[in-house]
Amino acid sequence: MSDWYLAIGIGLLLTLAGALFRVWRGPDAADRMMAAQLTGTAGIALVVILAAASGDWAMLDVGLVLALLAALAAVAFVKAASPNGAGDPEEDDLS
């Protein structure tokens, strides 16, 4: 049974490799960041698969942490894109 899970895991790793290709090619910074977020999703799925494969469900906590914090890189990216790194692109709508 564990081998079946790991086979699915290899499939997930291949989808992750597809996202890696997009990180490499870009062309925009936003494309790279979106692809990195996609690998985050694949990573959480991998953690769940590994927990099932080993039967050690404490591993799910790692997936929980990844799911909670994956979006933080996107927030930092948005911040880095705004002038002097302090603002929020949405503010431009108002001013």
Binding site: A36, G43, L50
Partner: peptide
Amino acid sequence: VFFIVYGLLISVAWL
């Protein structure tokens, strides 16, 4: 960005 993805894969390796 590659380093961020690298950190994710390292967690999988630790598991």
